[in-house]
Nucleic acid binder design. Structure first.
Lengths: 341, 341
DNA sequence: TTGAAAGCGCTAACAT
DNA sequence: ATGTTAGCGCTTTCAA
């Protein structure tokens, strides 16, 4: 009838009995119910399409599970998929279920999610790639729910964050090109101004660029694009059309743009790594691509464990800055003989 | 201290006031509180490290958000990442938040999750790639929470499921090889017996094989592997070592094994597609790989919308069987000129 | 075998 | 400005 969901009392009424009996029927106990009454209750249940309210139920029952909220920019990117997977596992190990949200790097959406999570009563919030840190932090302070930031964070000052040092990731990969391949002729592919990108992991790219620049020089060429694969494809293709490879090596600022860059270079008739070396960030843990990508990786499992430890307060003194590692493939010019796996 | 979490009453006690006042300071209203008392309450809050109980709170507040549970086999696979992303969006559009769980195709874990979700009170459960359908279905019936199955389902009879027809997916791709490339000399890469795989999407692979076989003949060679990339790499490499390509084309049963197969073929010194054509399933929506993969795709957004419509009861009559589409790349032997994007 | 009623932790009338 | 108290929807004890 009314827009309200039926409650136990409604069912009891309709079945001409008490809420206790309805509860017994629903839970198969703890007291027995006569077949006649049980049948009546069952049909009342069905007539009303009754569904128990989990919150009320959890309030009475000794509850095992609590919840955390997890905000991620984009679930379709493999890196973030890995994050979610690992975090969910760590959370479950601590009797917490994981509520998930796709922010798409949208500050408003991030805040809406945080509000929604607060409303259903999460016991902690994990934000991977924050887009609206100040407001989200504020909300959490008001609601007294702990937050931990991961990966990167936009617009925050105070916050400590758990993630890798993106600057040293940039140094790492540029150092490899310089030390192993004696290559300093490097260009950076990535969007770096707010004008280039409305939403996206601008800061991370900027920090990676910083790291690369500190190794190969501040004047390295930058191929400006937004943060989309097609943007990178277009920008790199354009540069190549305008006359030859700009550099002997390309460092691509985001994972999603790496394959597009490879494609653009190949479509222009250049060979990888013979004509152009290509390296990037956040490659998948096992790579069967061809040629195999050289990237800097994040230790996702370590990060996830640290984040949950801090969020749930068992580990308040963890250091938040972790070091990325180089995974050598073939696109940088190395020769890799071991089969992947 | 006791192991119990402090409640509002505890805080009120310690601050020498009432629960109402504590509630007022927590929520900034609806009544004002004197600065003195407010300060007392605040420090009591901090002393006890009070955290509100979301369930109790949600019970009183007019609640907007409800929750659904979403079970996925493996979040690190792009296909499932896409599923989760789309489903979360559709759920949110209906004022539902999404609780997520990684089953790893493990029947026990699936059931544990379902139990946990029931305990926190979800209003619906979406299972992508069920591993334990009968028991999960049972649980949901008992708890009166609606379930919708997606993608595929193991061991169920009654259930209707929302997903693509994997058999016709197999037909589609084998048909392309036959009709466009005049190629019937096809082998199938995939694990098909329970002995090969403990966990994994065995049934889906089996159905795809069925489709392929119905086009190219029931006697097609099958390269048996478990469902891991490294398994495929090993199996394909072994076959190639034993003397030449077994077939002019390879259909790979799972997405995760496709790149590994390509790698194995390339490492054996064969060219794709000149020596061996390779096609697969569930490629990412945009593919910048090189060569570009020819795959059969699932219309993830359509599936997600249909699933939520059915789960939340707005759309009980949707047909559950959807048709996959062929996305032509280069690994089958086609020549694709349009830049991707 | 059934029903009445006491809470779970919180919010917000309704009283002071 | 503060305290008292009636519920939210449910489980379960206690009484019948």
């Amino acid at each position: 009838m009314s827009g309200k969901r039926p409650t136990l009392a409604d069912v009891a009424n309709r079945a001409g009995t008490s809420t206790a009996v309805v509860s017994y029927v629903l839970n198969n106990g703890p007291r027995p119910v006569s077949d006649l009454l049980r049948a009546k209750v069952m049909s009342a249940l069905d007539d009303l399409d009754y569904r128990p309210d989990g919150r009320a139920r959890a309030l009475r029952r000794p509850r095992r599970w609590r919840q955390i909220g997890l905000l991620v920019p984009d679930l379709t990117l493999p890196l973030f998929g890995e994050f979610v997977g690992r975090i969910e596992v760590e959370a479950r190990a601590r009797d917490h279920l994981t509520l998930i949200g796709n922010t798409g790097y949208d500050p408003e959406r991030e805040l809406e999610f945080a509000t929604a999570f607060a409303e259903v009563g999460v016991d902690g919030l994990l934000v991977v790639g924050a887009a609206n840190a100040p407001q989200t932090a504020n909300l959490c302070r008001r609601e007294r729910i702990p937050v931990v930031w991961m990966h990167n964070i936009r617009g925050a000052v105070e916050a400590d964050i758990i993630g890798v040092d993106h600057v040293s990731a940039g140094e790492l990969i540029a150092g490899h090109l310089r030390d192993v391949h004696n290559c300093r002729d490097v260009a950076f592919v990535g969007g770096v101004t707010a004008a280039d990108v409305r939403h996206g992991d601008r800061e991370t790219v900027q920090q990676r660029l910083e790291g690369v620049a500190s190794v190969v020089g501040q004047d390295l060429p930058i191929i400006r694009t937004d943060l989309t694969p097609s943007g990178a494809y277009g920008a790199v293709s354009a540069i190549l059309r305008e006359g030859g490879p700009p550099s002997r090596a390309l460092v691509v600022g985001t994972y999603g743009q790496t394959a597009a860059t490879i494609r653009a270079v190949a479509d222009a008739g250049l060979r990888i790594p013979d004509d152009v070396r290509i390296v990037g960030f956040d490659g998948a843990a096992t790579d069967y691509g061809r040629p195999r990508l050289t990237t800097v990786q994040q230790p996702v499992d370590v990060l996830a464990r640290a984040a949950l430890g801090r969020l749930l307060g068992e580990n308040p003194s963890t250091r938040g800055q972790f070091v990325p590692t180089l995974r050598v493939g073939e696109t940088c010019g190395c020769v890799v003989s071991t089969p992947p796996g």
